[in-house]
C-alpha cells in the first residue's frame, strides 16, 4: 500500500528529526516540545503497526501527562544553558562511549528476539489477527493471566514511588489556618447569627 509507505516514511523521518532536535536545540523548552513531537510520531508508527491501543496510551500517558510535567518544570527552571554547554566537548568522549555501548547492546537485543521462554513459545502459535481479537482484549488476556504478578508488582512500585514523592514534599507548618470544608458546610444559622431585640437607650449588654 503506497499510502501506508508514505505515512511510514513521513512519521519516521519526523520522529528521527525531532529526536535529533531534542538534543540539538538551544532552548530547553523547544527541546521538550520536540520530544513531544517525537512521542506523537512514535504513536503514529504504532497505529501503522496495528497497535492502536499502545498508540493511544502513549499519547495519553506520555504526551498528555508526563511531558506536560516536563514542560512545567523546564519552563520554571532558571538555568543558564549556555553556561552549561561550555564543558560539552570534554563530556562528549564519555557520552559517545556510553552511546556506543548502548547501541551495541541494542543490536544484540534485536538480533536475538527471544525475551523470555514464554514469548518464544508463543511464536510457534499463530497470533490472532486484529479482525478476530482486538488489541485491548489481546493485551488484557496476557496481562491479567500470564503476567499478573509482574503487573501487580509494577503497580506496587508505582504506588511506593508516589507515596515517596508525597512524603518528600510534604511539610507541616505550625500555625497555618486551613479551610475545613466540612465545618463550613455543617455550620447552622443558629450558631452564626443571633437576633437580639435592642431596647432604646440601653444598647446591647453582655454580648
Amino acid at each position: 500500500m503506497i499510502i501506508q509507505a508514505i505515512a511510514f516514511y513521513m512519521l519516521s523521518t519526523v520522529a528521527v528529526a525531532a529526536g535529533f532536535m531534542v538534543i540539538a536545540s538551544r532552548n530547553p523548552v523547544h527541546s521538550v516540545l520536540f520530544l513531544i513531537l517525537a512521542f506523537f510520531n512514535a504513536a503514529g508508527l504504532f497505529v501503522l503497526l496495528g497497535a492502536e491501543f499502545l498508540a493511544m496510551i502513549l499519547v495519553v500517558v506520555y504526551v498528555g501527562a508526563v511531558a506536560v510535567l516536563f514542560l512545567f518544570v523546564v519552563m520554571m527552571l532558571d538555568v543558564d544553558f549556555v553556561d552549561l554547554r561550555k564543558g560539552a566537548l570534554q563530556h562528549m568522549q564519555l557520552g559517545t562511549l556510553i552511546g556506543v555501548i548502548f547501541f551495541i547492546e541494542l543490536i544484540f537485543l534485536i538480533a536475538t528476539v527471544n525475551v523470555t521462554p514464554e514469548v518464544s513459545a508463543q511464536g510457534a502459535f499463530p497470533i490472532p489477527g486484529p479482525d478476530e481479537r482486538s488489541n485491548i482484549a489481546a493485551l488484557g488476556d496476557i496481562l491479567y493471566t500470564d503476567y499478573i504478578y509482574l503487573f501487580q508488582a509494577s503497580g506496587l512500585i508505582l504506588l511506593v514511588a508516589m507515596i515517596g514523592a508525597i512524603v518528600l514534599t510534604l511539610r507541616t507548618r505550625e500555625g497555618v489556618k486551613r479551610q475545613v470544608i466540612a465545618d463550613q458546610v455543617n455550620r447552622r444559622r443558629e450558631e452564626g447569627v443571633e437576633l437580639i431585640p435592642v431596647k432604646p437607650g440601653e444598647g446591647i449588654k453582655g454580648t
Binding site: 523548552v29 516540545l33 492502536e52 493511544m56 495519553v60 498528555g64 514542560l71 482486538s134 485491548i136
Partner: peptide, 23 residues
Amino acid sequence: NVGILYLFAISSLGVYGIIMGGW
C-alpha cells in the same frame, strides 16, 4: 475501535496550546 481513547488522548493534548501560548 479505540474511539473513546482517541478522544481522551487528543483532548489531553489540548493543554499544549494554552501552555505554549502562555510561555
